[in-house]
Amino acid sequence: MRQPSAQRGAPRQRRAHSASLLRSAIVIGVILLWEILVRIGVIDGDFLSAPTEVVRAMADLLGDPDAQEAFRRTGSSILLAFVMGTSAGLFVALALGASRLLREAFLGPIAFVLSTPKSIFLPIFTLIFGLGGMSAAAFGAFESFFYVVVNVIGGLGLVEQRHLKVADAFGARTVHRYADVILPAALPGIFAAFWYGIKHAFLGVMIAQLWASDGGIGPLIRTYSAALKTDYVLAIVLLITIVAVVAGALWTRAETRMNRWRSTGAATVATI
């Protein structure tokens, strides 16, 4: 049974605290177990390197100029993909948001492509753009475009008619309608659009590079895993995962702050 709200604060905080302790214990336990199993030979080190080796490989990678170059190339492809995909997505979303007719005609097809494995179009990108960074960037932009459109439109759907009515009744001009009503109400969707935009620009570039590329992290991973250098593969994966998780946590925090006024959790539309 729920406690009255006045008394609920303290136990809840204590629970959160012990939960985070247990969580840390689980994570540390799993890493320790993994290390031990590899050390005593239950797991073959060629298939899954011990955590200590992964950390060592990570330090190696960070100092390796070839790896740095690969990270730099991939990073610039991701940035390019994000800029292209997001600006195209914003443009299309605003056009669809402005016209109900356009929205009804094309939102369905866009949603269909959204949950389609976009990798099936990879051959077309390779044919047109070749194996260089542009190919990966174009595919990343293609991936992120659909997420941006769907999320921005979802955000515009959060704009409430009654708030627009208040704006009219209190003499708002067009610029006020956008700045004071439409933008703040649609913000969760726009925020989500940027998040999924960068996330899928990243995933798209990675997929394209794993598929076929003459440089970047994708080929690096392929080379290391073909040479059974599992520790290096895991080190790369772990590095990128850490970046992704930290970015995700920061994003959630920023979003919560931006939407402090919202009583319920902000609605994000596409979550794949």
């Binding site: 991973i221 392929r222 290391y224 895993s225 994966v237 990128i240 995962t241 992704a244 998780v245 995700g248």
Partner: peptide, 13 residues
């Protein structure tokens, strides 16, 4: 949040 795409070579392994 983990970019699972990157694990693919390991799955092959």
């Amino acid at each position: 949040l983990v970019p699972l795409v990157l694990f693919y070579p390991l799955f092959i392994l």
